[in-house]
Nucleic acid binder design. Structure first.
Length: 306
RNA sequence: GGCGGCGUAGCCGAGUGGCUCAGGCAGAGGUCUGCAAAACCUUUUACGGCGGUUCGAUUCCGCCCGCCGCCU
């Protein structure tokens, strides 16, 4: 690996859905000579194009994209998988003396990439099914008894998190003394994180609403029908994607399209809000509030400062 | 015109003569180490209007307004 490029921070462009990241990313990648590493939990799925707002074929031909279209909708994919793939992409880009530009909205995936997070204890599906059948109180009781340090760190009302801690206890034991914790934010890669977001909440929501309409107008429903015809049992992640879940119900005749559209907009807005919450806590983030056109230059300028 | 039903927060929707007056969605804030576009936590906003009965009415009664259905 080239040591000069290794010292340069990884450029990251994040923000809520609908802020205009793709547009800015393409511009910046063009002027700074970057390759794009997608940081999006849903764009890894092949065929989920319209609803995940994937860059077009032309756009992808213009700038190399990585970590996109990695798996099919029936395949499970999660943060550790992303970590492996994204780090490989970053290392490869840097070894070719180019600069990676990480673009996306999935906060956890970004941290999996740039922070020194080690995922351990891959869950076993059969045991997970067993644990899922147990009531929350039982899992909490077990955890408090066998791994009090873990119990004190999780949200005990959140069954999914508690269950994972039980799995970790079973597989890697109680929390090691050396565990520095999530909040240490030990960087594996130095990074510059630009958060792109519209000036106001109203503007963000307006952008989201009209984007959902234009996705539906460009054949989103057909895309889902197409995917559904090749596979009707989707992975947990893909099957939970906003919009896809609702459109599947429409195709199955369980939901009217107008209702689906409203629900998709509402869920997307909520999602955008949670994204903003995530980045508010990111100390390395620098915020750029405005439209993509307005912010593009400012972000590029900041990225170029070394 | 007659008869009946309904009117509860931005929306859906239970309920009650007084008590911390359901719940869901949306909105706002937050959490986040293998489903993260997920999961979870906290939280604002009500009883169509005017009278009456009552110690007390969102709840009971009357009138009015609005909506829906049926009849002529």
């Amino acid at each position: 690996m080239n040591s000069a490029s290794e010292l340069k921070p990884i450029l990251c462009l994040v923000g809520p859905t609908g802020a205009g990241k793709t547009q800015v990313a393409l511009e910046i990648a063009g002027t700074l000579g970057c390759e794009i590493v997608t940081c999006d939990a849903m764009q890894v799925y092949r065929g989920m194009d319209i609803g995940t707002a994937k860059p077009s074929q032309q756009q992808q031909a213009q700038i190399p994209h990585h970590c996109m279209d990695l798996v099919d909708v029936w395949q499970e994919f999660s943060a550790p998988d992303y970590q492996v793939d994204a780090r490989a992409a970053v290392d490869s880009i840097q070894s070719r003396d180019r600069r990676p530009l990480v673009v996306g909205g999935t906060g956890l995936y970004l941290r999996a990439l740039i922070d020194d997070i080690e995922f351990r204890g891959a869950p076993s599906p059969s045991r997970r099914r067993e644990l899922e059948a147990k009531p929350l109180e039982e899992l909490v009781g077990w955890l408090e008894m066998h791994a009090p340090a873990r119990a004190s760190k999780v949200d005990l009302a959140n069954e999914r998190r508690v269950l994972r801690q039980v799995e970790l206890t079973l597989d890697v034991g109680p929390l090691p003394e050396t565990d520095l914790g999530w909040h240490q934010r030990l960087s594996r890669y130095p990074a510059k994180i630009a958060v792109l977001a519209p000036q106001s909440r109203e503007e963000l929501y307006a952008r989201i609403n009209s984007r959902v309409d234009s996705m539906l107008a460009s054949g989103w429903l057909d895309e889902v029908a197409q995917l559904l015809s090749t596979c009707d049992l989707w992975s947990k992640t893909a099957g939970n994607a906003i919009g896809y879940r609702q459109l599947i119900s429409v195709i199955r005749g369980e939901l009217a399209i107008e209702q689906a559209a409203d629900e998709i907009k509402a869920k997307t807005r909520t999602y955008a809000r949670r994204q903003l919450t995530w980045w508010r806590r990111e100390p390395r983030a620098r915020w750029f509030l405005g439209s993509p056109q307005e912010m593009s230059n400012d972000i590029a300028k900041w990225f170029q400062e070394d």
